[in-house]
């Protein structure tokens, strides 16, 4: 049981972090807070992916002695999985881009309604 918890707890922490963000996205009434929630959500996903890559006892995915002429046998087990890192580099960029567009939209909203509180905006729409 203890092993089980030790083995999985990091996933659970990521999930809790995600859900904090998810909750903020849905229930916060301020648009900026929603965006912050969105960021937390996305960041948690990124950390989750990164933790898939982890291998106990392995090092960074940069080859040591790469230029030595190849006498050293390169073993996959001694380097952590590079693929999730690559994916997350892309995902980070996507996230930043989304954030940028979201903020631009928020600015536009603010220009139109002079407020960022959802309730007030809804009142003004009606």
């Amino acid at each position: 049981m203890f092993d089980f918890i030790v083995g999985k707890y990091n996933y659970w922490i990521h999930i809790i972090l995600m859900m904090i963000g998810f909750y903020a996205m849905m229930s916060k009434r301020n648009l900026i807070k929603k965006i912050i929630g969105m960021n937390i959500f996305q960041t948690a996903i990124i950390i989750f992916f990164i933790s898939i890559a982890a291998k106990r006892g392995a090092t960074l995915p940069i080859l040591e002695h790469a230029h030595d002429g190849g006498e050293h046998a390169i073993e996959a087990i001694s380097y952590i999985n590079p693929l999730p890192h690559v994916l997350m580099l892309t995902a980070i960029v996507v996230m930043v881009a989304t954030l940028g567009v979201a903020l631009a939209v928020v600015i536009l909203v603010y220009r139109k309604y002079d407020t960022l509180e959802e309730a007030e905006i809804l009142k003004k729409i009606k």
């Binding site: 969105m38 939209v105 905006i121």
Partner: peptide
């Protein structure tokens, strides 16, 4: 449109995040 877009953006991002998960 801007406010509708914002809501769409939030929902869309949730959708994309779920897909990514």
């Amino acid at each position: 449109a801007p406010f509708a877009t914002f809501r769409y953006l939030v929902m869309g991002t949730i959708g994309a995040c779920f897909y990514l998960l």
